[in-house]
């Protein structure tokens, strides 16, 4: 039917006679299309769509993501707030909602480094790893897509409203569910097929044995996507899922390079030089320089910095705060410091 009318709007606006003439509809379908209640509920839905300013993208639209289109079970309609780009290279970064500091840090870092290289980060806007993935992409100045299990007019979880707005500005928030749809648990597994379907690969950062992100990984395999997993402490209950994925053949991720390698992308030098460009903008004093030098090789404890740079703790404490304020270094738990990536 869509093939004939090309756009649902034409079906909608067509009269009874027209539909009959097309010969594509049984009388029952025509009756239901013309039914008053049905028409009213559809009008209400249209209102909601208009209200949140969502685009309606059907499978037949040219802007429907092609990667998703060629999966086994693509959604007929995507409601989209923000902008989807043609042929963007997407990687999904997913994981537990309840994640450890390690998992959150890895999610953010990985996403940021991928985004810096021009890769769009897809995730589910959930608490924990998902949120960090979006944040990382935004920090890296890249694009990111959030796939929701509820209507795109809903901020779920509510504390992510602000993050959702940022994602819309720098990518898109999409869903196959009508605006107004409540976040009900059984929608979430189904939306995971969209996350993997959009992406060239799915990176699972931290997942316990029963994490929903493992469903995404399963979809990814069915859809012929790569599955990457970030290894975790073998004693940690929060990493049993990811570690099992690795045992079962997922590609182990110890750095962004492992994903880039697999994607076979031509990296432009401009992208790669992001960090270098950033640091050139800083005007470092003598002490700042020597501390920065000391941090080149990775995180260092404040006591070691002081000792190795021959400075007092008081001086180092003060300089580190200044470096932190200028965004050059970052403090880790336990008074360890590292250069901002």
């Amino acid at each position: 039917m869509l093939d004939c009318f090309r756009d649902p709007v034409y079906i909608w606006e067509a009269g009874e006679a027209e539909l009959k003439a097309s010969g594509l509809c049984t009388p029952k379908v025509i009756r239901s299309l013309m039914d008053k209640d049905v028409r009213e509920s559809i009008t209400a839905a249209m209102d909601k769509i208009n209200k949140c300013d969502a685009d309606v993208i059907t499978l037949y639209d040219s802007c429907y993501p092609s990667a998703l289109k060629h999966t086994a079970d693509p959604p007929i309609v995507l409601y989209c707030r923000g902008k989807l780009e043609r042929d963007e290279v997407c990687v999904a970064v997913v994981g537990s909602r309840r994640a450890t500091w390690y998992g959150l840090d890895m999610a953010k870092r990985l996403s940021r480094e991928l985004a810096v290289r021009g890769i769009t980060i897809v995730s589910g806007l959930a608490r924990g790893v998902d949120s960090q993935a979006h944040k990382g992409a935004l920090e890296g100045g890249g694009r990111t897509i959030a796939v929701l299990g509820c209507g795109v007019d809903r901020a779920y979880p509510p504390e992510n409203r602000e993050l959702m707005n940022k994602v819309m500005e720098n990518g898109a928030v999409i869903s196959e569910y009508l605006p107004g749809t409540e976040p009900v648990p059984y929608n979430f597994p189904a939306r995971n097929r969209i996350i993997s379907g959009l992406s060239r690969g799915v990176a699972v950062v931290e997942a316990s044995e029963r994490s929903g992100s493992l469903i995404t990984a399963d979809f990814a395999l069915e859809q012929g996507r790569d599955v990457y997993a970030v290894p975790g402490n073998i004693n940690s209950a929060y990493s049993t899922g990811t570690n099992r994925l690795i045992r079962e053949g997922a590609k182990i991720v110890t750095g962004v390079g492992d994903i880039i390698e697999e994607l076979n992308l031509e990296m432009t030098s401009e992208n790669l030089n992001y960090s270098a460009k950033k640091s050139a903008g800083f005007n470092l004093s003598g002490d700042e320089k020597s501390i920065a030098q000391r941090l080149m090789s990775g995180p260092v404890h404040i006591d070691s910095i002081a000792r190795d740079c021959g400075l007092s703790i008081a001086a180092v404490s003060s300089v580190l705060v200044m470096l932190e304020l200028s965004g050059f270094v970052e403090q880790l738990p336990g008074k360890f410091y590292k250069l901002t990536e």
Binding site: A99, T100, W101, N233, N235, S236, Y238, P333, G334, K335
Partner: peptide, 21 residues
């Protein structure tokens, strides 16, 4: 610093979620 006690240790063995912390 947290339930497992290791959040501030460089070993990175803390298995607490931020929520728990």
């Amino acid at each position: 610093p947290c339930r497992c006690g290791k959040f501030l240790d460089p070993s990175g063995q803390c298995t607490c979620t931020p929520g728990q912390i």
